[in-house]
Design a protein around this nucleic acid. Structure first.
Length: 423
RNA sequence: CGGGCUGUAGUAUACCGGUAGUACACCUGCUUUGGGAGCAGGUAGACCGAGUUCGAUUCUCGGCAGCCCGACCA
């Protein structure tokens, strides 16, 4: 894409009402727009990044047999009354509204109820199980206080996977598969080394759940990290009893602040029993389905990546989620030859399947470099009088600052998609 | 929801009970051209409502909006 055509622009200063680094940088770089407190639109660059994150998660969910669907944002009140999660006394962050035709509806805060009901129409035999289904969907939570930019909004994108099994053992296998997929997902998203599977409270569902916590001072949670085992314990369950159960010793753990980027739960039969999701076993006896739920917020992940990986110049996207693979910058200063060379390289890269943001604007070098650093595309390629004379373009890696000089052919060969993905 | 703070141009800010100033951005022209250029000119602004006052962007009250701390976050 040509940067001259991109309707968003960078800005030098962050809006005064944003304190969170992720929001400041994402707004300055033109990735997101704040609509109101805790509610953000994703602009072209931001959407590309968000979609990259979604794609990675989708691949991993599909790899463990997850089937994608999309459920509705508007919720059936009567369904939620059956699990006792409609009453404001029980769940206080609904966005509720009345229907003109009479009655009430609410915007989905999570989707155990509707999916369990859907499954009750299709699951009736032990032959129908196990199965897993997931969706990407905007969730709505009427938080008392939105904060931390896109990391804690009132409307946000969520990937929610739900598992359905015949027995606890089968459920555990699904849980383990989802857990492994989560570890792989966060590795691919560039957060692997700083993200810890973390024992946490199971809330109303079970004794423990596991959270995926990314170490960051911007986090709202306190966790105790075991570096060697690469696991952690949330402060909320940091008791001698829990540690004994987990085989961990206090002296081996380090206190850190962290961002919860994922959460996996055993649900047991809480929803299947309440909503009548059961199957007939081999003997013809009716059995409740054993469920689990597994969430990742792609938009929160995006904010987390900015919090964790940016530097004083701007964002540093991992290759897997960058809006573009290459930021091609021409410094023609009116030189027809430089312009032509850059245009040709843009064409060749694009036709090789490389995603390129081409800074073809009539702007000065300093401005282009500053914008490039801010936007955080992994590889910057400069074409100028200097590089033209040398016969090689200048390639600078955003993260490391490492500079290489390559011919156009060498460059294209090194960034072709089939090569980058290594498959 | 408790406590605190703030609303001035697209963005960031200044001053003031009496013509609202600056920087960036934007537009025009000239110069400049590898790290957010220079000169000249231009466009653009007081959240909404009520009150006090000769006069309110400024003071008071109400509303709306935003931010921070805390509580909450299934």
């Amino acid at each position: 894409m040509r940067q001259s055509q991109l309707f968003t622009k960078t800005r030098r200063e962050a809006p005064k009402d944003e304190v969170a680094k992720n929001a400041q940088l994402l707004i300055r770089a033109g990735f997101i727009h704040k609509e109101m407190a805790g509610v953000y639109s994703f602009l072209p660059l931001g959407l590309r990044t968000l979609n990259k994150i979604v794609d990675v998660i989708r691949e991993e969910m599909n790899a463990i047999g997850g089937q994608e669907l999309v459920m509705t944002a508007l919720q059936d009140k009567t369904l939620w009354e059956r699990t006792d999660r409609w009453d404001d006394e029980k769940v206080d962050n609904w966005f509720k509204t009345s229907l003109k035709a009479g009655g009430e509806t609410g915007l989905g805060i999570t989707h155990e109820e509707p999916l369990t009901r859907i499954m009750s129409e299709y699951v009736s035999s032990y032959r129908d199980l196990p199965l897993m289904a997931y969706q990407f969907q905007n969730k709505f939570r009427n938080e008392m206080r939105a904060k931390s930019g896109i990391m804690r909004g009132r409307e946000f994108l969520m990937k929610d996977l739900y598992s359905f099994a015949r027995t606890d053992e089968e459920n555990q296998r699904q849980y383990d598969a989802a857990r492994a997929a989560y570890i792989k997902t966060f590795e691919r998203l560039g957060l692997g080394v700083v993200t810890y599977p973390t024992f946490a409270s199971g809330g109303i569902f079970s004794e423990f759940s596991e959270e995926f916590q990314t170490i960051s001072d911007a986090g709202e949670d306190i966790i105790y990290v075991h570096e060697g085992k690469h696991i952690a314990v949330n402060k909320e369950v940091y008791t001698d009893e829990a540690l004994a159960k987990l085989g961990l010793k206090r002296e081996d753990l380090v206190e850190r602040k962290a961002i919860e980027v994922g959460n996996i739960f055993h649900l047991g039969t809480r929803f299947s029993e309440a909503l009548g999701l059961a199957y007939k076993d081999e003997a013809g006896a009716s059995q409740p389905v054993v469920m689990g739920s597994y969430g990742i917020g792609p938009s929160r992940v995006m904010g987390t990546i900015v919090e964790v990986l940016s530097d004083e110049k701007g964002i540093v996207w991992p290759e897997s989620v960058a809006p573009f693979a290459v930021h091609l910058i021409e410094l023609s200063n009116g030189s027809v030859d430089v312009k032509a060379e850059a245009e040709e390289l843009y064409r060749d890269l694009t036709s090789s399947g490389v995603e390129v943001l081409f800074d073809d604007r009539d702007a000065r070098a300093g401005e282009k470099f500053a914008d490039s650093d801010l936007m955080g595309i992994p590889l910057r390629v400069v074409v100028s009088e200097k590089t033209l004379a040398a016969g090689k373009c200048e390639c600078v890696h955003r993260g490391s600052g490492k500079t290489e000089h390559k011919t156009n052919t060498e460059l294209i060969e090194s960034v072709r998609p089939e090569r980058r993905h290594g498959r």
